[in-house]
């Protein structure tokens, strides 16, 4: 079964942007895919073994090609707003693994200083826009970040807003995309269609055959692609970036993938009840890492030994960051009352 359902104008062939990548890029992409996989494995393991005792771990196993493929072609001055299954994106866009782990462990050094959990962090200096638990809401906020660029005469900076197929049913998703389309803002909405919003299957969230069809209502391009195929994600992203940077407005990219795990680590048992086992087995076979490795070997540029499974140094890098976070200081209780207001402007008593 092919999961590639690309909507294209005039039936023209997509440019194979991925064929223009250098060998050094290919290795870096391979390593990033593995970073994403190992990050997920390390945190599931930490939770299971009691090293991580608080908060949930939201798995991203199987969605690695989306994170890497959508960020690799970005410029340093572009924006992203990752969601809970995109933790590695924070690292790809400039946060340290230590910072991210401090966030997961709720430490004082975390970007939120222990105030918020998991992916609800950002850093405007790195162009990482903070999202909330209400995934759709960030699509609308993204319009504001882009409006600020317009006021500064920077219309070519793109914002990539990640969301789930379930969040496309929310009001802010619609209001945000409608606004972006009316004003032709360079917003790329990456919908990680992993088929389940918690337990609710996509057919109870979206009435159309593809999520990408929602684009028709905004008069903008909508792509529905195989989210487990790095090259498909990368090529589509490059095309969308050209479109957005040229001032043509927003784009929806639906990356069809599958949530191999539960909604979070606490959901593993029930997640086996609300999803057919055959479905999980089918998608296990579509592992984006295996597929990308096969692709790399097929190019003839690599030997098996050059593509280790996994690259052990990455595993060690992640473990070092976990050790760092665990030994890093907890926030002082009184800091819970800090950062509620910013009085530096001096217009308040």
């Amino acid at each position: 079964m092919s999961t590639t359902r690309t909507r294209r104008k005039n039936g023209q062939q997509r440019v194979a942007f991925h064929e223009r990548l250098e060998k050094s890029d290919l290795i870096e992409i391979y390593r990033r895919l593995w970073f994403a996989r190992l990050f997920d494995e390390a945190l599931y393991d930490a939770k299971k073994k009691g090293r991580l005792r608080r908060g949930n771990v939201y798995g991203s196993r199987g969605q690695e090609a989306i994170m890497v493929g959508t960020t690799y072609p970005l410029r340093p001055d572009d924006f992203v707003s990752p969601i809970h299954r995109d933790m590695p994106v924070f690292v790809f866009r400039g946060m340290t693994v230590e910072q991210v782990m401090c966030q997961v462990w709720g430490k004082a050094e975390a970007p939120t200083r222990g105030k918020d959990s998991w992916s609800h962090m950002g850093d405007m200096n790195l162009g990482i826009v903070h999202s909330t638990s209400m995934l759709g809401s960030t699509i609308a906020v993204a319009c504001g970040v882009l409006w600020a660029q317009r006021l500064d005469g920077r219309r070519d900076r793109v914002l990539v807003a990640y969301t789930g197929e379930g969040a496309t049913a929310t009001g802010p998703f619609h209001e945000g995309l409608n606004f972006a389309a009316v004003h032709k803002l360079p917003l790329i909405v990456v919908v990680e269609n992993n088929q389940y919003a918690y337990s609710t299957p996509v057919e109870l969230e979206v009435p159309t055959k593809t999520v990408a069809e929602r684009a028709l209502g905004y008069g903008i391009p909508g792509y529905s692609i195989d989210g487990n195929d790095f090259n498909a994600v990368y090529d589509t992203m490059c095309e969308a970036l050209d479109h957005a940077r040229a001032g043509n407005g927003p784009v929806i990219i639906e990356c069809v993938t599958y949530r191999l795990q539960g909604h979070a680590d606490h959901d593993e048992t029930r997640a086996r009840k609300y999803r057919p086992v055959e479905e999980i087995e089918l998608w296990e076979k579509r592992d984006p890492l295996v597929r990308y490795r096969q692709y790399l070997l097929s190019t003839g540029q690599f030997t098996e030994a050059e593509l280790p499974e996994p690259p052990l140094d990455i595993k060690e890098q992640i473990e070092r960051a976990i050790v760092y976070a665990i030994s890093s200081p907890d926030p002082e209780p009184h800091t819970a009352l800090e950062d509620i207001y910013d009085e530096s402007a001096g217009v308040s008593l």
Binding site: A140, A142, W147, E175, G176, F179
Partner: peptide, 22 residues
Amino acid sequence: SPISETAIIAVCVGAAAAGKRG
């Protein structure tokens, strides 16, 4: 703006995160 109270406020929020005052 379109009739979109969420977007109206959200545009101010996002722009504020990027240094503006909406």
